[in-house]
Design a protein around this nucleic acid. Structure first.
Lengths: 119, 119
DNA sequence: GAAACCTTGACACATTCGTGGTAAGGTTTG
DNA sequence: CAAACCTTACCACGAATGTGTCAAGGTTTC
């Protein structure tokens, strides 16, 4: 079996066992479970945990920020509402990056609608 | 002058004056200032404030969530890192929505790179 | 110039986030 | 079966969010 239990996973990822449980509860990395309920971290989870730790450290984002990002990724309605709100602001000539992001978000929306219409 | 002072803006948006200052501090809605420093809310800001309030209520998102979304919209590096992290997870056959979102995010990335390369 | 507004700064307080412990009890392994 | 591990469920506690209120001091308006 190529999966680690929580303490082993903690050792190789730098998270504490306590935090691994917390990260799972936040919906960010949910390992499989053994028949008796033990968490079993596979290679994918371990990688995700390491990347997450780096992301959090490098950009100073919180776990709740990441949870929110995940939520947006899985809830198109929320995502669209947030994008729409942001798009009403990006009209300052300076930040072109935001404009770019939003342009593609809008295209996404249009394409999704088109895809639905074409069905 | 078609701009309202903070108490007037509070009255028409449903936010308290205190919260209007807080929202500004969070970088979400920053009104102009009069020469003497008074906040002056124009029609655009008022609309943004109302929409924000609705968004927060309807989807139960926090102001820090919105601040994070704004940050992602203006920081492509952060946005890409977050998308990349999320994309490594969306491989569960269930949530197709997330896949969709990420697909477009990736296209965005490719296009941005293409645009840079074409310059 | 007094009343009614605005500003920033601070104190306060409930709630959530991020973390660490510890306890009571099941599982694995030597 | 005992040691070492795991689980959930709590208590705790500092930091950040969200929100109100109050104080000291400028502005606007009558």
């Amino acid at each position: 079996m190529d999966s680690l239990t929580i303490n082993e996973a903690a050792a190789t990822t730098g998270w504490s066992p306590r935090m691994l449980r917390y990260v799972e509860q936040a919906g960010l990395v949910a390992p499989e479970r053994s028949p008796s309920g033990y968490r079993l971290y596979g290679a994918a989870e371990l990688q995700r945990l390491r990347t997450l730790k780096e992301l959090v450290a490098q950009f100073d984002v919180s776990l709740s920020d990441m949870a929110f990002a995940a939520r947006m990724a899985s809830d198109a309605e929320l995502s669209d509402a947030v994008q729409a709100w942001l798009s009403a602001q990006a009209s300052r000539p300076e930040d072109v990056q935001a404009e770019e992001w939003l342009r593609f978000e809008q295209e996404k929306h249009e394409r999704l609608l088109a895809a639905v219409g074409a069905a």
